[in-house]
Amino acid sequence: MQGELSERPLTPQELLDLKNKRTGLAIFQFTWILVFVCLMFVHWWIRGQSPVWPPEGVAKHGVLVPTIMTLALVASSFSARHANHAMKADDRDTFFRHWRIMIGLGALFVLVMAVEWLLVPVSGQYSNLFRVLVGFHGVHALAIGAFLLRVYRNARAGAYSARHFWPVEAAAGLWYFVTVAWILFYVVLYWS
């Protein structure tokens, strides 16, 4: 019975729904990444107000830990991709393995960046910008992370399959968004 059901090709209505959701997610990723672009612009503008950057007497952010964390986040995005493909191939074991790796690396990223956020010495605009950018990204990472956990719980309950995979794909897509948004901020905060 189960097998028969999954053999049936998707109806035109189901295909249209899937296409709509994919287009909608893509537009959402595009539009909301522009908020991050806006904050990049703000960062450049504010630093242009100061003759030297970081302002005199303020230590530059250490770059080593964030770089490792960035790599962890990028790695977690690859796990998301593997997990997403595994679900479409009905390969549950691979899905769970990669989904767990993704959540683990993501949680590590959020935790370490939260510590960085708390430890940054207060220094006017320099720390303001750091806290607003990292905090703004962190809020998104947490919200989308909560969604990843929920998808994990539902998957454990057997909610998804090679036919019904949209929440998995959406969660992966949103996690790519978190990664790309962070790479923008990483470049601005540490390398520009």
Binding site: T31, W32, I33, L34, V35, V37, C38, L39, V42
Partner: peptide, 8 residues
């Protein structure tokens, strides 16, 4: 394309 800048 524009409203995200208002949000920011």
């Amino acid at each position: 394309m524009a409203t995200p800048f208002l949000a920011g």
